[in-house]
Design a protein around this nucleic acid. Sequence first.
DNA 1: CCCTGATTCGC
DNA 2: GCGAATCAGG
Length: 152
Amino acid sequence: MEWTEERIEALRSLWMQGLTASQIAERLGGVSRNAVIGKAHRLGLSARPSPIKREPGAKPVPIPRPARVAPPQHHHAEPAPMPAAPPPPQQQPISAKAPGAAPAGGSKGCMWPIGDPKQAGFHFCGAPSEPGRPYCTQHCAAAYHKRQVDAA
DNA sequence: CCCTGATTCGC
DNA sequence: GCGAATCAGG
């Protein structure tokens, strides 16, 4: 497999969400958990944002996982049109937030849809989003816009 | 044993 | 840079 920007984004996102390396590897596909860990270290991440844990119970906050399946109405159905239906990224659950982590205010947290929903679903880093924007500063804003450009 | 992430090291 | 093997811990 190849570490495309999308996959790296996904790795970042999932890692920051607290998913385990094996879970990330499973969702990315084509890589072992060792590969994920190794890449994570090379990317400079490895320390997750404090006490965000959402493994037990498996009730992840974001990652809506839109089920894309064309219902077989007729036998000669057409291929799924992929209408690019961007699910509303704005959610605020994110648990209460880590003590001392999230800044009070209108910020919701950087979270926006990422390339292939089947693979990553959502980018999500711990950073607070800009007011009125789904993404945070600098890196995420750039990545967010790049995604839109690429999609176009 | 199952799992976790961390590190090493040949490629 | 990549990731299997290995290490250390729960």
